Computed example of a mutant assay.
Amino acid sequence: MISSAFGGILAANRVVSEDIAKLIKKQNLFVEVIIAPDFTKKALEILKERKNCRILKWKNPVFPKRQIRTCFTGILSQDRDTQIEKETNFNTVTKRKPTEREKKGLLIAAVATKHLKSNSVALVKNGALLAMGCGQTSRVDALKQAINKAKKFRFSIKDAVLSSEAFFPFPDCVEIAGKAGISAIIQPGGSKNDEASVKMADKYKIAMVTTGFRHFKH
């Protein structure tokens, strides 16, 4: 049995056209908020037929440069994570280099994990997010969560790419990824056991790149 998304938020990074609105209607997704830079007139007519759905148009937000976290004994003030990975940040550490298709997927996956609670991973294939695992005390658990979720929705993981927002302390995640058919990995690197993870990636012919930047959101 496949469970559906329920009571969520649908966000778009482009103008919602009539065709997109028709697809949303056809899928019969129950979303309480739809937000996008803009909507065409026809799209609005279709979307306004939905009951109890808030349609929002967003403007370019201005975020504060600092973030505040509270704790029992005070507060923590830290710089906002504004890092966005680019191909120029890629350092290929395995024998096989990522293909152009894999590079594009790795960049998307890296953006996803940046915004997930640690420990987190994301699986991407053909430009789409398949599944994510986040908020786990173990990176292995986060990866298993993502793989199980992708399988639950009958997504093929073969040749998907994987992003981890922090380094792999051990090669176990790479081994799990290899057995699942994942073809490329992006991660910060910097662990004492990096060499073991690289050897495991080479064993499964996985292309792995490191960026030298750790997101690790809490």
Rank of each mutant, 00 (worst) to 15 (best):
A21M: 06
N119M: 15
D19V: 08
K22Q: 09
D19G: 04
A166P: 00
Q145A: 06
K57P: 06
A128P: 02
A160F: 01
T73M: 14
G212M: 03
V198Q: 00
K103T: 13
Q83P: 07
F170H: 12
V15I: 15
K103A: 08
A112D: 03
C53A: 01
S138I: 10
G178H: 08
E32A: 10
D202E: 01
L129C: 06
A201D: 01
D194N: 14
I206A: 05
P188H: 02
V16D: 07
G74A: 08
A5M: 13
L162R: 07
V31F: 04
A11V: 15
S3D: 08
S197P: 07
N60W: 03
K65W: 00
S156G: 14
T73R: 13
K51M: 05
S4D: 00
N28H: 06
K203V: 05
K65I: 11
Q83S: 07
K192A: 12
T94G: 11
G212Q: 01
P98I: 10
S163L: 00
R66K: 15
I75H: 01
K199T: 01
K25L: 01
K41L: 09
D19Q: 08
G181I: 05
K57H: 06
L106V: 15
M200D: 00
K104A: 11
N91S: 13
V121H: 03
L107Y: 05
M1A: 12
I157E: 00
T211K: 03
K103G: 03
S138Y: 05
A150Y: 15
P188T: 02
T137Q: 06
H215C: 13
V33Q: 11
F90L: 04
K104R: 14
Q136L: 03
Y204C: 01
H215K: 08
N28D: 10
V121T: 11
V15M: 12
I35Q: 02
E32R: 14
A196P: 04
T99V: 00
R101W: 09
C134F: 03
I20W: 09
F39P: 00
A177K: 15
L143R: 01
L23C: 02
T70Q: 12
I176V: 09
F167P: 04
K48Q: 12
R101H: 14
M208D: 05
W58N: 12
V33W: 00
Q27G: 11
K217S: 13
K22C: 10
H115Q: 10
I84H: 09
P171R: 03
L106H: 05
G127V: 02
W58Q: 04
K41C: 08
I35M: 12
F63R: 14
K114L: 10
N148R: 09
C173A: 00
H215L: 10
H215Y: 06
K179A: 14
S191M: 02
K104F: 07
A150H: 06
N119S: 08
K86V: 01
A131P: 10
N148M: 08
A128Y: 11
G8F: 05
D194H: 04
L23W: 03
S156I: 11
L107P: 10
K103V: 07
E87F: 13
V16I: 14
P169L: 07
K48F: 05
G189N: 06
A12E: 11
L44I: 04
I157V: 12
V121P: 03
V33N: 07
C71R: 06
M1L: 09
I46E: 08
A201Y: 02
M132V: 13
